[in-house]
Structure formats: structure tokens, C-alpha cells
């Protein structure tokens, strides 16, 4: 594990000049992931905020080979790139070692890209897939996704007079990926960079398909004070709504245990998309959300203890 000083001295592969919003989590996530990889990297990106904001022709914020084809297929596209690499390497036509990384938002990963992701994971291509999860379709203007938390207001799950925001819990994608029996699955937050960097190192070294999911605040969609981007991810981990863990060859390990488990409302109140939940008539939703978080946390602890 490199020190912060060592990380800072590495060549930056995701550089400034991109047009992500001030306070956007995606840029921080991309930068941390790329810093963690001390080898030549080829990057694939699904259509989404990170893609449209970092490669507006004729500019590119990627100081490394980078490819985008469409929205739902970054896992398939990058698996073709890995296949090309394996083939050309075997034939002696290239000699360079390379690491392959795919970035997709929660839309491109949880929803429209789930099939391509599952296919690539099952085939076991040697690559790291990073989902930067901002919990809605932020690039098209804050529509709900299956990663949107219960109760959140989005433009397609608005908090209205009859329906108080999103009525479903988010999908547990990490468990779905664990069920693919891939060698490495982890969650992370940009607010705990050392945890994230260590996980990326393990993911890249795992020798197969690795999946990481990183919570990525959206200051426009959540919305929150852009100065709090990293702090808000730490509060998410402290409430156990976004627990930090890794699954190595099917074995769960908690990588961060909050000293004191904070109530989920501590996280909710930092974001306006949940403001309606604090009205007296929606108290039951707050309770339901807290209960859901508690159940998932307990279940995760059991998996970690079992391992």
C-alpha cells in the first residue's frame, strides 16, 4: 500500500480540465482508482456523466488509452479489448503489460448494463469494473434507478401529494456480483481513499474479473453542499447505509467498522432529496429505511463472521 506522498508523485492518468460539476464524486473516484494502479491501463467508459464530461472532442481528461462505445455495454466492450490483448500478447504482437478498467454509473451498471456486466463477469475476463454509484440517472437529469434509495425524490420518483418519493429499496448489486463467484468484489467511498486504493490494488492483482462499487455523491441530484462531497460519503459509511467491505474468493471481510453506528437520518439530512421524509406524515418511511439498513448491516456482519 503506497503512502499518500507516493500516490501523489505518480503520473496522473485522469487529469484536470474535465467538465464534471464542482463537488462531483465521479471525478474523485476516477482519479483515486487511476492513481491506485501503478501499471499501464486501458480504460473503458459507459455513457454517463464521467464519459460526457471527460472527453468532449477534441479534449480528453484521460492520459491513458480510453474507449467509449455506448451506454449498456461497457463490460462487453472492454471484454473485447481484453480478448484482443490476450490474443495479441499470445501471438507476440504486443509486449506491454496492461490492466483493463471499466467505469459505469449505476444506470449503466445496475440497470441497462446488468446483462453485459453479468456476461463479462461469468466469462471471467481479467479486468476491474468500477461502478460509480450516484444513486440515480444523473446524466439525463436525476431519474430513479434501481440503485436509488427508498424515499428519495428523483424526477421520475418525485415526492408528490400521494407518493412520497421512491417506494422501493435499492438493489443489492454487490451480492449479485458475489453470486457470480468472481475472485474480488468490494465497496468503497472516495472519503476513505486509503481503503479505496487498497481495494483497487487487490482487485487488479486478483487475476480475474473484479467488481467494485463506489458511492459517488451528486451535488445536483442529491443535492448537497459541494464542499461536503467526501464527508457525505463518510457519513454514509458511519450510518452503515453504505458499509465498506470486500469479498475475496467468496469470503466477506468488513474493512471499516464505525465506532458508533449513526442513525441513517444523519446522512439523509445532508441531502435535499430526502427532505420530505422529515415531515411528520412520513415518519414511517424514515423508520422503514432505518430498518432496512439495519437488516442489511446485520446480514453483512453475519457473512463477515462466517468467513
Amino acid at each position: 500500500m503506497p503512502t499518500l506522498k507516493q500516490l501523489a508523485s505518480r503520473k496522473e492518468l485522469f487529469v484536470s480540465g474535465h467538465r464534471l460539476c464542482p463537488g462531483c464524486g465521479a471525478g474523485v473516484v476516477a482519479r483515486q482508482v487511476m492513481m491506485a494502479i501503478d501499471k499501464p491501463v486501458v480504460v473503458g467508459c459507459a455513457t454517463g456523466c464521467l464519459e460526457v464530461s471527460s472527453t468532449i472532442f477534441p479534449y480528453s481528461a484521460w492520459n491513458t488509452p480510453w474507449l467509449h462505445s455506448a451506454f449498456e455495454n461497457v463490460a462487453a466492450t472492454i471484454s473485447g479489448a481484453v480478448a484482443a490483448y490476450e490474443s495479441l500478447k499470445r501471438q507476440g504482437r504486443i509486449h506491454q503489460e496492461a490492466v483493463f478498467v471499466a467505469f459505469g454509473g449505476d444506470g449503466g451498471t445496475y440497470d441497462i448494463g446488468l446483462q453485459a456486466l453479468s456476461g463479462a463477469a461469468e466469462r471471467g475476463h481479467r479486468l476491474l469494473y468500477v461502478c460509480y454509484n450516484n444513486q440515480a440517472y444523473m446524466n439525463t437529469g436525476i431519474q430513479r434507478s434501481s440503485a436509488t434509495p427508498l424515499g428519495a425524490h428523483t424526477t421520475t420518483s418525485p415526492a408528490g401529494k400521494v407518493i412520497p418519493g421512491k417506494v422501493q429499496f435499492s438493489k443489492d448489486l454487490a451480492s449479485i456480483m458475489v453470486a457470480h463467484n468472481i475472485p474480488y468484489v468490494a465497496t468503497a467511498i472516495p472519503g476513505r481513499w486509503a481503503d479505496l486504493v487498497g481495494k483497487v490494488e487487490k482487485a487488479v492483482a486478483c487475476g480475474g474479473f473484479a467488481f467494485m462499487e463506489v458511492l459517488s455523491p451528486c451535488r445536483l441530484g442529491w443535492p448537497h453542499d459541494p464542499a461536503l462531497t467526501l464527508e457525505i460519503t463518510r457519513v454514509a459509511a458511519d450510518t452503515c447505509l453504505w458499509p465498506l467491505y470486500e469479498v475475496i474468493e467468496g469470503k466477506y471481510r468488513l474493512t471499516y467498522r464505525p465506532k458508533e453506528k449513526k442513525p441513517v437520518s444523519e446522512w439523509l439530512k445532508l441531502q435535499r432529496r430526502f427532505s420530505h421524509l422529515f415531515k411528520p406524515e412520513n415518519a414511517h418511511l424514515l423508520e422503514e429505511l432505518q430498518k432496512g439498513v439495519d437488516i442489511r448491516w446485520e446480514s453483512l456482519l453475519k457473512k463477515c463472521e462466517a468467513a
Partner: peptide, 19 residues
């Protein structure tokens, strides 16, 4: 591939790598 959409996507990834 797990679908034709992904088959063509993988061909695109491979071809973009010079294969």
C-alpha cells in the same frame, strides 16, 4: 458473448485495440 449486442460491442472493443 451473452447477446448479439454484447458480441458486436466486444468486436468493437477488440477492433479498437488493433485486433
Amino acid at each position: 458473448a451473452e447477446s448479439e449486442h454484447s458480441a458486436m460491442s466486444a468486436c468493437i472493443g477488440a477492433s479498437a485495440c488493433g485486433a
